[in-house]
Design a binder for these strands. Structure first.
Lengths: 224, 224
DNA sequence: TAGATTGTTAATCGATTAACAATC
DNA sequence: TAGATTGTTAATCGATTAACAATC
């Protein structure tokens, strides 16, 4: 892939990219990788859309925000498009991630295989319970007391953090992550956290996901 | 709260409710419950919006899809609005949920405190590894082989399921859940699953959440 | 060439916001 | 009453879809 196939910088020429577009990009990538495993070498916008429940026009428009990746009459070459989307998302490199919170959820995140496959490695995990930390590495991952966050985060050039602590502790943990230069936080605590400008957040509240599901079960067909 | 404050059925009179509205409803509920803990008895659309980063108009419009819950000049009474939103979402009752998959993530879900607080109880957990099942209950929760899904699901009147199995197994598990009458599936496997009409799904892909975060870190400010 | 499919423009559709009469 | 705030309408804004010339 040559740089020329990419637009200068997404946003500079075309205004900001809608969040919905970016979230579909991840789904395209996942589907493309699955297709590639199945031996597929090219795919049309129509087929990719069908597999995910989108229109062909939407697939093409989404990709067109970022450049010209397709071949008229042919479609998209899977490997090429995978590389392109990874690069757009920033996951053509592996990101070191800090995890805070070593309860059930934190431990599950440590064991989660899916991160490595998509360009993320948890390189350090923190808790504020000395007993938990003293129990030593989990799956070879070093554990630290939260007080050691500054050194460890800087040594590992950590820009992304995951918060898996109880709700009441989340804001304070977020503040400490921001203080050591973390630029993005994936928050699993069931509270809204406030972050300064320039720090991104994605919130995942497991109970809310079930709640959304419940609404659509109870109100079958009453959503857009 | 009297029934009269609710519109007949969301959707019948006003067309389908946008998904985005429903997802904000969950955030309103979470924020209201947090406010109530802090002793707040009423809240205005302006304040609720400010806490979550929405406009006051949006808050009022979202709630107005479902009825008249506010008091002009006063705002909303927290307890009343909490009850109303729970009822809208369907979480004014507790839902029994089946969990399939007893790896790291499945076990974390069993231990997750947040579900009970929001109206969900995992009442049975399944795996297809007999060794895992034989190891016996986890936190008092009975474990079953997946082959026992039909009896157990029917005995417990289970309508919601969570899938926490590896990607390649997810579709087959989904099919089995649907076969026993499950109406909504929360899918943690990193694949798109196909379900028949009339069965809802919400997908949570942890790696995709990190990916979305990464994009916004790399393209600071370039999203809507 | 004929058939397929892209990237892009214009039209449509839907969601958000601003404004304000009604209400407490 | 004056001040605050709702529910709702109309205006704005943004995202999706349809259509099609260009391309392979």
């Amino acid at each position: 892939m040559s740089d020329a196939e990419f637009k200068p910088t997404p946003g500079e020429t075309d205004g900001p990219v809608p969040k919905a577009v970016v979230s579909r990009l991840s789904l395209y990538l996942r589907q493309l990788q699955q297709g590639l495993l199945g031996g597929q070498t090219t795919i049309s916008s129509k087929e990719l859309g069908r597999l995910l429940g989108f229109t062909d026009a939407q697939v093409r428009k989404d990709l067109a925000y970022f450049g010209h990746f397709g071949y008229p009459g042919i479609g998209y070459k899977c490997e090429e498009l995978i590389s392109a989307v990874k690069r757009i998302l920033g996951t053509d490199q592996t990101w070191p991630v800090a995890l805070v919170g070593l309860g059930n959820l934190g431990r599950a995140l440590i064991g989660y295989k899916g991160f490595a496959q998509r360009g993320f490695t948890i390189v350090a995990a923190f808790d504020n319970d000395p007993g938990v930390v003293a129990a030593g590495p989990i799956d070879g991952l070093p554990l630290y007391h939260l007080d050691n966050l500054p050194e460890v985060a800087r040594q590992n050039r950590i820009r992304l953090g995951m918060i898996a602590v109880p709700g009441p502790a989340a804001q304070s943990v977020a503040d400490r992550l921001v203080a050591v230069g973390v630029e993005g936080i994936l928050n699993f605590a069931p509270v809204t956290i406030k972050l300064p400008e320039g720090v991104s957040q994605v919130g995942v509240d497991l109970a809310i996901e079930l709640e959304q599901l419940t609404f659509s079960v109870v109100n079958r067909g009453a959503t857009t």
